[in-house]
Amino acid sequence: MNSSEEFHRNENGWQNSVIIIPALLSGCTLVVVAIIVWRSVCNKVQRKESKEKTKGYLGDWAVNAAGVFENSLDAPDPVLEKRQLPAGWTLEHRAPLCDGHFGPISCGDLCRAGEDSQQVVVKEMSEHCSPGEVQDFIDLMKFYVQVCNHNNLVTMLWCQTTRRPPSIILKAMSYGNLLTVLRSSREVARTSEGGPPRITEKDVYSMALQVASGLEYLSGTHDLIHGYVAACNVLLHEDLSVQLCGLGLAAIQYRSGSVPLRRAAQVPLKWHSPERLKGADITEKSDVWSFGILLYELMTLGSPPYPDIEPSQLPSKLRKTFRMERPTLCGPQLSEVMSGCWQWEAPLRPCFTDLLKLLQNGQDQADRWTPLTPGDTLSWREYLSVAGIPT
C-alpha cells in the first residue's frame, strides 16, 4: 500500500469519527433530558394528588397556606363530620373581639332562613399557624365534641373544616369575659337592661361553685388539668351562669397524655402554684391553687394577685407563710376556702369535690345584699403590668 492510499484511508476514518461521536453525544443528551422531564412530570402529578387529598378536607385554603396543612389529615374525621356547620347557615354581623392563640376571635349572629338568629363566638385559625398548631386546632375541635359535655364548660355548636378559614363556632355568653365584667362593674351600676351586674359575695359563691363543678368534671371524669384557672378564662351569662374556656392545655393533654411545658410556661406567673414555679408537673392540686387566685379576683372585682409584688420577683418572694390579705367584704368561710387552696404542700390542698362541699356549706351565710368594692384603682394598662400579662 502506497503512502497516498494510507493517507486517504486515515482521512476517511477521521471524518467518520467526527460525524459519529457528536451524534452519540447528542443522543445521550436527549435521553438524559427526556428522563429529567419525565421525572419532573411525575413529581408534579404526585404533588397534585397530595394537594387534592388535603383539599378534600380543608379546602383551597389548606393548600394556599404555605403548605401548613400538607399531610395533616388524609381523610375527613368522623367525629368532626357530624359537627360541620350545615348548609344554609350563615355567620352575619361579625365583630372582632381579640386575637387568640390560633388566630382571630370574633362574635356574630348564626342565622338560618326562617329561624331566630343565635349569638356565637367564632375562633378562626390563622394561615400563619405552624404545623403543630394546626394539629392542636383540629384536636381542640375534637376535644370540644368528646369532652366538653358539661354545663360549666364552653360549648362548641359547630365547626368548619371544609371552608376557608377553618373555625370553631361556640355558644356565646351574653356578658362575655368575666374579668372584663368584674372591672366594668366597678364603674357602672346596673341601671339598665344588659348593664354590668352589681356583684355580691353571694354571687361569688354561685360563680365559684360552677367553676369548681367544671374543674371537678375535667379532673374526675377525664383526669385532665385546666392549667390556667383565672377570671379571664371564665365566660359569664346574664343569669350569672358561667362556663370555663381557655381549654387549650387540657385539649393537648387529652390527645397526648401530657402537658407541654413550653405552652404551660405561657401562663402568667401570678397564677402559678409554688410547685409549678419550681418546674414540677402540673396537677389537679395546681389548679386548686389557681382556683384560690380566682376567688381573690372575684372578691376584689378583678384586682391582680399579689398587687405589691412584681411578677419577676414572685418566685423569690413567695414563701410558705406568705398569703394575700383577705379582701374587703370577704366572709370567714370563703377566706378559709382560699387559705385551703393556698396550702404550700400540694397534698394538703382540698380536691375539687371537697371544694364543692365547702362552698355549698358556706353559701347560706354569704352576704347577698352588699355590692363588692374594688381592691385597687388601677387602669387597664396598669392592671396588665402588675398582673404580668403580656400586651
Rank of each mutant, 00 (worst) to 15 (best):
S174K: 08
Y175I: 00
Y175R: 04
Y175K: 11
G176I: 00
N177A: 13
L178S: 01
L179S: 08
L179A: 08
T180K: 15
V181D: 00
L182Q: 11
L182C: 06
L182V: 07
L182E: 06
R183H: 09
R183Q: 15
S184A: 08
S184Y: 06
S184F: 13
R186T: 00
R186K: 13
V188F: 10
A189R: 15
T191F: 07
S192W: 14
E193W: 14
E193H: 11
G194A: 02
G195S: 11
G195M: 02
G195Y: 14
P196Q: 06
P197N: 05
R198I: 00
I199E: 10
I199K: 03
I199L: 11
T200V: 01
T200Q: 10
T200S: 12
E201C: 04
K202R: 13
V204K: 14
Y205H: 15
S206Y: 11
A208F: 14
A208N: 07
A208H: 10
Q210P: 11
Q210L: 06
V211K: 08
V211Q: 14
V211H: 10
S213F: 02
S213Q: 05
S213H: 12
G214D: 09
L215D: 08
L215E: 03
E216T: 00
Y217D: 04
Y217L: 03
L218F: 04
G220C: 04
G220L: 02
T221W: 01
D223R: 13
D223L: 03
L224E: 01
L224R: 04
L224V: 02
L224Q: 05
I225E: 13
I225M: 14
H226T: 10
A230Q: 15
C232K: 15
V234M: 13
L235V: 03
L235H: 12
H237W: 02
H237K: 00
E238H: 13
E238S: 13
D239T: 04
V242K: 10
Q243K: 15
Q243V: 05
L244C: 12
L244N: 09
C245M: 06
C245Y: 09
C245D: 12
G246V: 03
L247T: 00
A250E: 06
A251N: 09
A251E: 02
I252V: 08
Y254M: 01
R255W: 07
S256W: 01
S256H: 08
S256K: 04
S256M: 05
S256A: 01
G257W: 03
